[in-house]
Design a protein around this nucleic acid. Sequence first.
DNA 1: AAAATATTTGGTAATTTCGCCAAATATCAA
DNA 2: TTGATATTTGGCGAAATTACCAAATATTTT
Lengths: 106, 106
Amino acid sequence: MPISEKRMLERVKVIKALAHPSRLAMVEKLAGKECCVCELQQLIGDDFSTVSKHLSLLKNSGLVDSDKRGVQVFYRLRVPCITDFLDCVEKVLSENKSSTACKKCK
Amino acid sequence: MPISEKRMLERVKVIKALAHPSRLAMVEKLAGKECCVCELQQLIGDDFSTVSKHLSLLKNSGLVDSDKRGVQVFYRLRVPCITDFLDCVEKVLSENKSSTACKKCK
DNA sequence: AAAATATTTGGTAATTTCGCCAAATATCAA
DNA sequence: TTGATATTTGGCGAAATTACCAAATATTTT
């Protein structure tokens, strides 16, 4: 049976959360260890408000979680398989490389 | 060393390609077997031109490839690990389910 | 060559996403 | 309570995405 429309939208929501350079970079950083917003802001370089919105989107997708300690907020990855996921993306990229090596053959 | 900006954008391009309900549905269908555009159009239900544009975006990302046979064009997945990738997305969703079971605890 | 079928391309309006600024909120320190 | 620091929220213009229609292209059949 085909996957329900609702399920599909849920999936897309997670994928969309990863589909932005800043958010992807933050997720990769969080794969190593939890970070406060200030660390992530430093990594990205955008305004705090922008970074904060990216983070809230990530959180809303379920990819990350956060908790406040004192005046800081720490974010961490909720699901470790992201690394494998990125490996798969890399596999696509390396396929691209090998087949575009000989454009003239097309 | 951190991943290059260019590399990050390439990754995002692949992920973005998956971040749309129609495209994701088509990729999942293609995980089973190659299909002609007409089959995919039937699956999605949108106009042919819309489906075609989705497919060209998928192709441009490197996720799928195509070849023309007669008057039809067949698309197929270039990288099989998409299935694992979706498993990971599903894992996020199931995490979401289990932790939202008790919203009041927040 | 003309007709028919399958797919792609160009153009456009509607919607969504993005990033900045200013202002609001929360927590700790003085 | 006042001040300082860390983060979030509201609002807005700019940029990107999406879906449709009409027209173009390519291939096979007549």
